[in-house]
């Protein structure tokens, strides 16, 4: 069986009325030609939309500057986080993780081999205070844009309350205070637990029901002293209680 050639199939897309019946009949009975015809129609469907938009010239300069920073033959290295300064920030209502840093760091994490899902089995119990207590859940805190450890949070139980003990580390020296949040795994709700008074450690009483409801993601944010009670959007560490 000879297939319809591509030119004829193209004509079937462009000028169906002018296509001989023999071509049409063959295509109808031939899955292969039908597929190719569908592919051509697909192209035609994709021919619309706006023209390409070139990036501003500074992007090119930045690319070349970065490339020149790294010796040409260097293997892919996970480290250089200092990048040429991004273009001047457009005023944003709230700060957030600069995109360029997040992207780079995500790349770093990939290169380093993702080590997600670590669990803390060591030191699973902390010495009790007065009442007998048990660690019911723990979260390894990590940076958001890498797997770098940022401490640990433990939920310990005594009587009917849960105490969340947060021991964070390496949160960085950014201005502002560190606030602890519990985010629900449904992704829609969160509660503020309070501030880490000394910067990286603190204890918070949590109603047991909260954990049962799915508030399991411990989040530490850096909050500017601006009177805004909502999350700043800048999370320094996070981990899920398991």
């Amino acid at each position: 069986m000879t297939h319809v050639d591509l030119d004829d199939l193209a004509d079937l897309v462009l000028d169906p009325d002018a296509t001989p019946d023999s071509v049409r009949e063959h295509v109808e009975s031939c899955p292969e030609c039908t597929d190719r015809l569908a592919a051509l129609f697909d192209v035609r469907r994709l021919t619309s939309g706006e023209p390409l938009v070139a990036p501003p010239a500074r992007v090119r300069e930045q690319v070349l500057a970065q490339v020149n920073d790294v010796p040409g033959d260097a293997p892919v290295r996970p480290v250089p986080l200092q990048v040429a300064a991004p273009p001047p920030e457009v005023a944003r209502p709230r700060r957030r993780v600069p995109v360029w840093a997040a992207g780079l760091a995500a790349g770093v994490a990939l290169v380093a081999g993702l080590g997600l899902g670590r669990t803390t089995l060591d030191d699973a119990t902390t010495p009790g205070r007065d009442a007998p207590e048990a660690v019911v859940a723990a979260a390894d805190l990590t940076a958001l844009d890498s797997t770098a450890g940022r401490g640990v949070a433990r939920a310990v139980e005594s009587d009917d309350t849960i105490t969340l003990r947060v021991q964070a580390s390496e949160l960085g020296g950014e201005d502002g205070f560190h606030e602890v949040w519990l985010i629900n795994v449904d992704g829609e709700r969160m509660v503020a637990l309070g501030v880490l008074a000394d910067g990286d450690a603190g204890e918070f009483q949590v109603p047991r029901g909260l954990l049962d409801e799915g508030y399991l993601v411990v989040d530490i944010s850096v909050e500017p002293d601006d009177g805004d009670p909502t999350h700043s959007g800048v999370s320094l560490a996070r981990g899920e209680l398991v």
Binding site: R96, G103, A106, D145, V185, G187, G233
Partner: peptide, 24 residues
Amino acid sequence: HKVADVRAARARDAGRLAAAVALP
């Protein structure tokens, strides 16, 4: 991949909390 990285970074934004925790 880079676009996905940006989306992930945005998802961590408080305003996009829903996406941050359990990206549907």
